[in-house]
């Protein structure tokens, strides 16, 4: 564990907590893409198949349970909670993500570290996470004004993978046999997808204005 990875995990945790706060405090999920939440639930379920088979550390196991539990809870809340579900932007959140799921799974069947059930699903989860934010970014552009908590949620979600890139550079420089091309390349693509959001987020922060994404 290094400081970059810890910062990344904490930033990721903060993004989940901000989202839970937004839904719990405002009893609303307006501006949040259910499709991105469902993609993230798939990402965690596919990536943490080793949850019960490999014990790495208490921290690792607890964080995996937190990420799986929170993503499923948010999906359940947005689908079935009688108050929250009413504020879901159903007609704006129309990204056909099964194309993304199919493409990522096909890529994982071709490009993986080892051809085993767990490894293919792990590679699938890495590729899927890289594009999971797309429905959310599309929804933000369509829904115009973005409330603060939603903007902060997307910001922290993007920032965590940027910390992970620093972690991979650090591990590459300090650990003799560390190579993790699948994670690194996907992580770069993932962070790059946030580039324009980060730009508009910085502008809104600098001008102390509402976050506006161009349509």
């Amino acid at each position: 564990m290094n400081i970059f990875r810890l910062a990344g995990d904490m930033t990721h945790l903060i993004s989940v907590l901000v989202l839970l706060l937004k839904i719990y405090a405002t009893k609303s999920c307006s501006g949040i893409s259910l499709k991105t939440q469902e993609l993230y639930a798939m990402v965690f379920l596919a990536r943490y198949l080793d949850l019960f088979s490999d014990f790495i550390s208490l921290y690792n196991t607890v964080m995996k349970l937190v990420f799986i539990g929170s993503s499923l809870a948010i999906v359940w809340c947005m689908r079935y909670h009688r108050v929250v579900r009413r504020s879901y932007d159903r007609e704006l959140d129309t990204f056909r993500y099964w194309i993304l799921v199919g493409a990522c799974f096909t890529l994982a069947l071709v490009l993986h570290e080892k051809f085993s059930f767990q490894e293919v699903f792990w590679a699938f989860s890495i590729y899927l996470e890289a594009v999971a934010i797309l429905p959310q970014l599309v929804l933000l552009q369509r829904s115009g004004n973005v409330d603060n908590l939603t903007g902060q949620y997307v910001f922290f979600l993007g920032a965590y993978r940027a910390f992970y890139i620093l972690n991979w550079i650090y591990r590459y420089l300090t650990e003799p046999r560390f190579t993790r091309w699948i994670s690194c390349v996907s992580g770069l693509v993932q962070t790059a997808l946030y580039a324009d959001f980060f730009y508009y987020y910085f502008i809104s922060w600098k001008n102390n204005a509402k976050l506006q994404l161009p349509a």
């Binding site: 990875r5 995990d9 990721h12 080793d50 088979s53 490999d54 790495i56 690792n60 964080m63 995996k64 990420f67 570290e113 080892k114 085993s116 767990q118 490894e119 792990w122 992970y164 972690n167 993790r180 994670s183």
Partner: peptide, 10 residues
């Protein structure tokens, strides 16, 4: 220590 399939990250 090398983990079962090197996945010690979240």
């Amino acid at each position: 220590v090398e983990f079962s399939h090197g996945k010690d990250e979240l």
